[in-house]
């Protein structure tokens, strides 16, 4: 299969009106390209949680996605407050979500753990008062079958 696709999407912080739109668009696009269901599921979760975090915490950001026959690479880069303690942010249940964000059903502290569960390779870098950068790689070939989330 001749699988190639690349695109970037801009995200405005605080824009809960359109939250999830980019994830839904990307998932449909990949579905049309014939990406396998299990890969689709993992990409959808990873992009969704990245998108929601940028909307929830950053002032703006970009999600860049590129697909080759080998892998899906997602870069989520934002300008924002950054993350003070990355180890803590990666821990399930840790959240600094405000009441306003929690009222909408966010703030379980599961977003980053969900992303990690869906990635074959995950890196996160962050600088206080500058921003955060996630790189998520999901393998298409040699996709290890044990990963079921």
């Amino acid at each position: 299969m001749n699988l190639e696709y690349e695109n970037s999407f801009e995200i405005q912080g605080g824009n809960f009106q359109e939250a999830g739109d980019i994830s839904v668009f990307i998932k449909k696009k990949l579905q049309n390209l014939g990406v396998a269901r299990e890969i689709l599921r993992r990409v959808a979760i990873a992009v969704y949680e990245s998108e929601i975090n940028i909307i929830s915490y950053a002032s703006k950001g970009i999600i860049h996605i590129s697909i080759s026959p080998e892998s899906v690479v997602i870069d989520a880069e934002d300008e924002g407050p950054g993350i003070e303690n990355i180890e803590l942010a990666m821990r399930a249940g840790y959240s600094t979500a405000t009441d306003k964000i929690r009222e909408m059903g966010f703030g379980a502290g599961m977003g980053i753990p969900n992303i990690m569960n869906c990635s074959d390779k995950f890196t996160i870098t962050s600088e206080l008062n500058k921003g955060t950068h996630l790189t998520i790689i999901i393998n298409i070939s040699n996709n290890d079958a044990e990963k079921n989330r």
């Binding site: 809960f16 009106q17 939250a19 999830g20 739109d21 994830s23 839904v24 998932k27 599921r41 959808a44 979760i45 969704y48 909408m104 059903g105 966010f106």
Partner: peptide, 14 residues
């Protein structure tokens, strides 16, 4: 019990 529009993307993605 969530009624706001963010539930739609979740249902669609999953």
């Amino acid at each position: 019990r969530q009624t706001h529009q963010n539930i739609v993307a979740v249902a669609s993605l999953k």
